[in-house]
Simulated assay, not measured.
Amino acid sequence: MGFGPSISVPTITGTQVVYPARLLAAWAVLTVTGLVLERVIRRIQYWIVKITGTHTFGWYSFLHSDHQDDLRETETYTVADLKDRLDWERKWWRRTTRRGVRAVVIAPVVEELTFRGGPYLLAVTLGVAQLPLLVAGSVLWAYLHTRNPRRYRRGTLPVFVSGLLSLYLWLIGLWWLAILVHAGNNLVAIALEASEKWWRRWQHSFSPGEEYTVTVDDRSPQPDRHGLYRAYTPAEETLHVADVEPGETTRVRVATTVGFHGYAYPITESGQAD
């Protein structure tokens, strides 16, 4: 029995009565389940690596960035590195928009037609059960997410679980709705990432591209483990600056924020108009 209003929609073989509220509830449950599984699996992998000191199965690359600090080497920053980082920050919206179009428009169509549409068509052509082939296609689709660039890499099981609704929709012939669900999943992921980015920026005192006149600290050991020097703005805010001398006053440009610290580099008079 469905709940909520029902509508009749076209399918591959005719029409089908669906309950939008039930589909929405199923989507929410599977999405949350996939996210919880992702976090649980990464936690387990992290503790196994931390306890054993090895990552035989390549789990190190799957660890969340918040947990990698104990295991990776110290990262140092030069002026060139910070300039590149500022350029990366300034182009962030452009990159996010392009990636959003690929993720929300192109990827759902290509992936659904390839990994579920292909098996569905094969099952119809051969006259065999659709479920085994659709499951196999979904498993392959989920596994390929483990081959993504490290930042976007996900585990096979969480991705497979999040795609169960699309698999079901293919089974009942609602291929177009499966594509929309896939697009909705990707849209939520892109929106959450963008929101997290801006939330972190909102929490910091500094924004990329801002300029300050700072005085470099000459009382503490310099530079720090990142190769940076601690400096203070007239408002006594702290910036970590590359390639400066203790005790000097200089004009700097903020490149990025890492954790709760602003990272900046000195600028010349000719570079202040950039």
Rank of each mutant, 00 (worst) to 15 (best):
R150Y: 00
G117W: 09
D224Y: 02
W175C: 13
H64T: 06
T56E: 13
E73Y: 01
V258T: 11
T146I: 02
W93Q: 12
F115N: 10
P20W: 04
N148T: 00
Q68E: 15
L165Q: 14
L131F: 08
Q68I: 07
R94H: 13
F160K: 06
I44W: 15
R42A: 11
H145N: 11
Q130A: 14
P266T: 12
Y143E: 08
V214L: 03
T215E: 06
Q16R: 08
D218T: 08
G4E: 10
G163P: 03
L113E: 05
F160M: 07
F206A: 14
E211F: 10
G155P: 00
R116H: 10
L82D: 02
V101T: 08
G14M: 02
H226T: 13
L140E: 10
Y263V: 12
R85S: 14
G58D: 06
Y46F: 15
A26I: 02
T215N: 04
W88M: 09
E38Y: 01
S65F: 00
V104E: 02
W47E: 14
L140H: 03
A264T: 10
G247L: 05
G14K: 01
P132I: 07
W175T: 14
T249W: 03
D84S: 15
T52C: 08
R201A: 14
R251P: 01
A136Y: 01
S162P: 03
V216W: 07
I106S: 04
I44F: 13
H204Q: 14
E196K: 00
P5W: 05
Q222A: 15
G209M: 04
A107G: 05
T31V: 01
M1I: 05
L157I: 13
A21L: 09
R94C: 04
G4P: 15
G2R: 02
T13S: 13
L23Q: 11
V79R: 15
Q272G: 04
R225A: 13
I51Q: 06
T213P: 01
Q222V: 11
A178M: 08
R72F: 02
L174C: 10
Q16C: 12
L144S: 11
N186I: 00
Y152F: 12
D84H: 06
G34I: 00
T96H: 09
P108L: 01
Q45Y: 02
H240K: 07
A183M: 03
R99K: 11
P266Y: 12
F62Q: 06
L30A: 14
L177Q: 08
V110Y: 05
V188P: 15
A264V: 08
R72C: 08
Y265E: 04
E75F: 01
Q272T: 15
L171Y: 09
R85G: 12
G209C: 04
H64K: 12
T146N: 06
Y60E: 09
T156W: 00
F260V: 11
G209F: 04
A231H: 09
Y265T: 06
P208I: 08
